[in-house]
């Protein structure tokens, strides 16, 4: 079942001489439950693609359909609500709110949604993420790997259908990186989620179901990995 469809997505920054084409009419389709790794050199346009899919930015032209709905038809308000319910973001620099504790940082999406935090689910997440004894710590008191796990928890809280991860392991050593990806795979399976993950690291990419390679704003290869 198709969850995400990207149609002729085009994005350019600047005008005239300074014009930079970040994405050139990209098409992509992702099935529900797929784990897609997006690889490419820096500046190839992979982050732009991810931002556009997540509704953080608007394209110059083209469309993104999620669950059959064109997200660029939404206004700012609706787009924000869409992000809050359908998308879970994970960033390279974990981007936790420094004044909030681990538990509060993870609960944030529900709080923004004026929703009561599902305590049982929150506890389950914290357990899975191995943060049980860090609940009341501030981000500054955590290691990089722990911070990233908090960010994953935050991304998962609203049970989004898509997780968008922009080099989530970029700041971690290889052992922690692997753990984080395993964790992501585990939770994705458990909660039936789709993952789009940007990475430089080919070892990380090979843990995915499918590798999409971008170069100069175009998809140059789209390859399914066979699992044994």
């Amino acid at each position: 079942m198709e969850l995400l469809r990207v149609e002729r997505l085009y994005k350019a920054y600047g005008t005239g001489e300074n014009k930079v084409e970040a994405l050139k009419y990209v098409n992509l389709s992702v099935e529900k439950g797929e784990f897609v790794a997006i690889v490419g050199a820096s500046g190839s346009g992979k982050s732009t693609l991810l931002h556009l899919i997540g509704g953080l930015d608007r394209p110059t032209s083209g469309n993104v359909f999620i669950d059959g709905e064109n997200i660029y038809d939404y206004n700012e308000e609706k787009l924000a609500i869409f992000r809050r319910r359908k998308i879970g973001f994970i960033f390279q620099f974990f981007n936790l709110i420094p004044v909030l504790t681990v538990e509060e940082n993870i609960s944030l999406p529900a709080l923004i949604d004026h929703d009561k935090v599902d305590k049982a689910y929150l506890n389950e997440l914290i357990d899975i993420l191995g943060l049980s004894n860090r609940r009341n710590h501030l981000p500054s008191e955590l290691s990089g790997g722990q911070q990233q796990r908090v960010a994953i928890g935050r991304a998962l809280l609203n049970k989004p259908s898509i997780i968008l991860a922009d080099e989530p392991t970029g700041n971690l050593d290889s052992k922690h990186s692997k753990d984080i990806i395993e964790l992501l795979k585990f939770t994705a399976k458990k909660y039936n989620q789709t993952i789009l993950l940007i990475t430089h690291d080919i070892q990380i990419a090979e843990m995915a179901d499918r590798i999409v390679t971008i170069q100069d704003g175009e998809i140059i290869s789209d390859q399914y990995l066979q699992r044994s």
Binding site: L56, E76, E77, R84, F89, N95, I97
Partner: peptide
């Protein structure tokens, strides 16, 4: 800015 940006990214509306 970064913190507000993050709140926006995870779905806070401008009004919020």
């Amino acid at each position: 800015i970064k913190q507000f940006g993050l709140l926006r990214a995870i779905g806070a509306t401008p009004k919020q």
